[in-house]
Design a protein around this nucleic acid. Structure first.
Lengths: 217, 217, 217, 217
DNA sequence: GATGAATGAGTGTTCATTCAT
DNA sequence: TATGAATGAACACTCATTCAT
């Protein structure tokens, strides 16, 4: 008759799996930060969602803002990983450009948390990102790809000359990003649900036309 | 003459000018909401910044969220007013398009609060804007202008055919918006200050080229 | 064309009838104090209900607590006036007793605000009432009536001897008061609506029986 | 060793005893609710009096109104427990009745908080009590006892017939309750301190006489 | 490593009261 | 006399963070 207190037979929750706990916290934090922003997210809720407890958050990450930075960095890394999967080098220039645009567009569509995260970080003037050491080199490979496509396109006479790769990168990103970043206000204003797949298709087709139409010699 | 106990020399602040007080609160709220978002802004700080006091905020606006909506609506209205200032209808099609793009670009540049506001509202899935009655018709005149420019451009043979006005509006907005919306993260990543006027000039020139390059027949 | 400002043709609300305004405030205050107690009632709501404005409350009564005292005094006075209407002196002793009990019972039934007011004042240990100068003499006439009835009843041999008039007064009051004072908790506990007229009839009949049954020699 | 910045010598209060903390909060709440009512009591003061802090009140009870209900329920339960302490079933009918009356009278005398609580709850029309699940059955045993006493008294020929147990319970309660519930206003009006033990004795004796005098056949 | 109780500084909101017109 | 804008202290409630076990 050893006094059973509560839930004697329940699975002992003390997992003692640091990595799992850490991972769960990060996943939960991504959800809440993306949904509510840095100021709006609650440590309590993140702890509950993670299945762990608040103390662990402070054990592993120090405080809320530090957790924010890690979540942000991981989101960037994940995007970079997906981006690396692309092999544009062997495509024809126009196909490569179209592919980059589509990739960006679809990434925005599938990863609204990423957009929410970055918008919030920009609200804070990127003060957290500036402390990050890993971010800076993230865009280098992508820029190299664009530069290569532009050069080949010029040589083949299918692209106009004198296009700046950085500006073009920003344009490619902008065409998809703005749509998804502002999808709720735009949907409200225009009175249609822009998240509807058909609406997305229209937008993507138009974006491709803009990009390739511009690049014509 | 044992006079008042507290703040003997305090400025006699009781201005008794409802409209001024209201205006001051809205101005202060715009600043704080833009800087910190809805969740991050503090009613206390807004009150202090407005030169009035918290009670007045609740007297005039009801609560923080209602204040947010009014600030948001006013920001939209202000943009629309500025936009209307010039008569695009009489311009040549290409000039008109360039003007719309430039206006949008410069408005984003000069009104970072507007961007912050809309990004935050999108974080909240536009739930506040959906309650607004004035917003929907705000964009109707702008779309009419774009439609008119497109038609005239087609007729004159300087624009391609079959361009959708709504998509084009989104593209015009996107080219400037994304740059300023993400200016802090982009500056961090690319290692240059994109708010620098020369950088802005580069971006604007490129954007105009993209727009007009795309519109060529 | 004398600048009309707002509601030019609206009836000029400025009644300039001090007594009416005062009366309205007191009526409104009675309602709110009885419904919410002293702490729960809101000066704002009283002002609105009175059709006047907050400033007038302070003009006429000084502050919330002073208003409370006046409302309380007026409630007592009103009860006293009703009580004076009774002419028990010529009734037979038993009829007189029954009449007093019924009067008290019905007064409690018809004036729940009075009960609410007194209970709240007792919560405050009657600190406000102690400051009142008019209250003390209120019960003298009633006690005289009871004393007279008791004496006549004894002489006629229909009442027992040695009954203390003050105790009997308290008993008479208690039989009706407790029922109505606790009517909501009692209704909840006993699962029946004690405010129902039939239930009130049962209670009154029982109370009369208790009183007269006790007074039997 | 630059150690803690604040409160170096503060007592290490973190007792970490949930049940004790909970108990302390309830005790403190009883005091303040009874003294000031629901609207008048302050969460801050309850927290301070409890030796704990505000956060714990919300952790354990949710909000002020939920705390109110628990305090109310516990007061009811405590009364019932005391009442059960003596076995009335074996007493002679008259002794049993006298005991019930005396118990109620003394309970009111010793527990003015209970009276204050119930009066406040009645001010709120018992909306909180209605949500309670435990209250209804609290009075069943008491009514059974009264019914039993009445029947035995009738059989033995010492009580009158046809007395309703519920009405009699209300009468028993009323005789003591009204006196203590209105003790402050009555003391003010009659100009004597009714809390004085001698005055209480007079009242109790009279009440017993009323009850038993009425019950005579 | 893990848990959940404990804390104090806030955070949105409301209140009684006063002042300018 | 009457109005309603203005004020600051308070109020119920919440939060990020820390401590005891």
């Amino acid at each position: 008759m050893t006094k059973p207190k509560k839930k004697a037979a329940a699975a002992p929750k003390r997992t003692r799996q640091p990595e799992v706990t850490r991972r769960n916290i990060l996943d939960a934090a991504l959800v809440d930060f993306a949904a509510k922003g840095l100021a709006g997210a609650r440590v309590d809720e993140i702890a509950k969602r993670s299945g762990s407890n608040k103390r662990m958050i402070y054990e592993y990450f120090g405080n809320k803002e530090a957790l924010w930075l890690i979540v942000l960095e991981q989101a960037y890394e994940r995007m970079r990983e997906e981006e690396h999967a692309i092999d544009v080098a062997r495509m024809k220039p126009a196909d490569g450009m179209r592919y980059l645009l589509e990739f960006n567009f679809r990434f925005c569509s599938r990863n609204p948390e990423f957009i929410a995260l970055l918008n919030t970080e920009n609200l804070h003037k990127a003060v957290y990102l500036k402390d990050s050491k890993k971010i800076q080199q993230l865009y280098t490979p992508l820029l190299a790809v664009i530069r290569d496509l532009l050069q080949r396109g010029e040589k083949e006479g299918v692209f106009r000359k004198g296009v700046d790769p950085v500006q073009l990168y920003i344009t490619i990103a902008a065409l998809g990003w703005f749509y998804f970043s502002n999808v709720h206000t735009l949907s409200t204003i225009f009175g249609r649900n822009l998240l509807d797949p058909r609406q997305q298709k229209l937008r993507l087709d138009h974006s491709v036309e803009v990009l390739l139409g511009f690049l014509r010699p």
